[in-house]
Nucleic acid binder design. Structure first.
Lengths: 120, 120
DNA sequence: GATTAAACTATACTTTTGTATAGTGCTTAA
DNA sequence: TTAAGCACTATACAAAAGTATAGTTTAATC
């Protein structure tokens, strides 16, 4: 009986892990999410700034992805009550902690490149 | 002059980082890559085993993704000279080290969930 | 008064990704 | 000898993701 309970615990735990990985994947997958998160790592930005800084992105995609990132709690959008209004996007706390994931990806990517080159 | 050289170094370095992240993303993105890598984390598997273990995957996708992962040096395919032939897939060294990336994703995902739930 | 800038939105389209379903060639077990 | 298992492949299709291009609204600038 106890063994079964533990098995259930393990299943529950590993399914939590799967959910967590999926959450992370959803946040960073797609062609433009990482470039956007990347520029915001250097600080607040306005829409037009990002359009200029991210090569080849178009406003439709930028708008769509920013909404997505906002809905997922990665980016916050602030409207400043000036005339004309100034709108700024920045990473949330959660958004900033994504750098740990990115770091592990940089590390793996560099390491993997070395191995692949060594094999040829 | 030296300052310029350093700036160039920084650009070169950060572009290496971007390439590394992209490599990692390419390896894990798509609907089926992580489920496949996930089952192989528990050891060698045959095609049919994986088809059974990964819910809802179809053989076309499994075949396609395995080829992709093999081409990227994440999975190796071994043909055993028995009759009938037995084919086994397993993670390469590089494939196994992906667990570090996955761990960071689990950690971020769990953490992010807590924050999102706390905000509601 | 015309032009420019910010912050987007709308429409139509192409490409990529994934699904559904059936079929092939080989081998062994009933 | 018929059926069933393995390791896939083939074809057609649907859905998701991304692109191209133009247009809107509000305000500031020349």
């Amino acid at each position: 009986m106890e063994i079964h309970q533990n098995l259930e615990d393990i299943k529950l735990c590993s399914s939590q892990f799967v959910l967590a990985v999926n959450d992370t994947m959803n946040v960073i997958s797609g062609k433009w999410k990482l470039p956007i998160i990347g520029t915001l790592m250097f600080g607040k930005k306005r829409f037009k700034d990002m359009e200029r800084e991210i090569p080849k992105i178009n406003p439709r995609m930028l708008s769509k992805e920013l909404k997505d990132l906002e809905a997922n709690g990665i980016v916050s959008r602030t409207v400043h009550n000036t005339t004309p209004v100034k709108i700024e996007y920045e990473l949330t706390k959660s958004g900033k902690t994504l750098n740990k994931v990115l770091d592990s990806m940089v590390e793996w990517g560099l390491h993997h490149r070395q191995i692949v080159l060594a094999d040829d």
